[in-house]
Amino acid sequence: MDSVQVRPMREDDLPSAERASAVTFSEAERTTRRVSDPEPEPRSAADSKRWIDRMRFFLSVDPGGCWVAVGEDAGVERAVGFAISQNRAGLWFLATYGVLPGYQGQGVGKRLLDAALAHAGGRPGIFSSSVHPGATRRYRMADFSLHPQMRMVGTVDRSTLPVIDGLGEGRADDFEWMDQLDQDLRVAGHGPDHGYMLGTLRLVVCRDRARPGYAYLDDQGQASLLAAAHPETAQKLLWEALASAQGTTLVNCITAPNAWAIDVGLAARLDIGQEGYIAVRGMPVPAPYLASGHFL
């Protein structure tokens, strides 16, 4: 659409881009929800602030990967689409991407994704994808392989929780070995992302030099990112997350090479279902690993 401009994102675009994100993903949830799923709820003010803070961080670290599509509404410029990608050493990842429903099917998404992919500079890439037919078509045409993901949901049966040892609270001085583990699993370390996540999440680590691993847990005990050198360590970390869970919990981004997570979830009496894809190009699906939606 000629009236829509795709350009590098600026910090003052963030409030408008957040509103576009909230509408886009709420509509996607509504159209793809299972009959048994609860009705999607509007994004809370706290979640909106977290989205803006996270995207501001990405803008500060790698602004060249951050793009916005803008149109005019009653003479006022507003975001109608966004693509936030980042380079970390030899890896490119897409943190978030979407186009308002009323602007889909008009080439806006392609222009945004093309700009983000140009920033990759030929690096291997990874991101978490929805099941949106138009988006998945574009990803496949860009040579990404799409690997189905599973999720596990429910209330943990606390009688199933095992005794876990060998774990401790993580610190900033763990980042060096964590980045090396990241590099072994996903081509490149998370680099500055670790500092951001440590400021907003709980970090649990296994410092066993033969079988290291780490997991970031949110304030509800959900594993937001998990990486390990061995499935046994990964299972310990996931059990720690489940032990910290409050009420209904979620384990997501589970791919076929990460069946160890399914075993833990089933043992804890969680229900299994399907959700979207992990898309990769020029790299295998990481394992033992549970990706983060935004930091991959």
Rank of each mutant, 00 (worst) to 15 (best):
V156W: 04
D165Y: 04
A228I: 04
D184M: 14
Q149V: 12
Q149K: 14
G170L: 03
L181I: 10
L203N: 03
M178Q: 10
R186G: 06
F175W: 03
V205M: 08
T155N: 09
D182G: 11
P212F: 06
H230Y: 02
G213M: 03
D184V: 14
G191H: 08
S145W: 05
T233S: 02
L217H: 03
G213R: 02
Y214W: 09
A229E: 09
G213P: 04
S145Q: 13
L198Q: 15
M150C: 09
A215K: 01
D182Q: 01
T155Y: 06
L161F: 04
R209N: 03
Y196N: 05
Q149P: 09
V156P: 03
V187G: 06
M197K: 14
P231V: 09
L198K: 11
L225A: 06
Q220G: 14
Q149S: 15
D218T: 04
P162Q: 01
A228S: 04
R151T: 11
G170V: 00
H147F: 11
M178S: 02
E169S: 12
D208P: 13
T155A: 12
L161P: 04
F175G: 04
H147P: 05
D143A: 14
T233Q: 05
A223S: 14
S159P: 00
L225Y: 14
D174I: 07
M178A: 12
A188C: 07
R151V: 12
V153M: 13
G221T: 00
V153Q: 15
L146E: 07
Q149N: 15
P162G: 05
D193S: 13
F144T: 09
W177H: 04
E232N: 13
M152F: 15
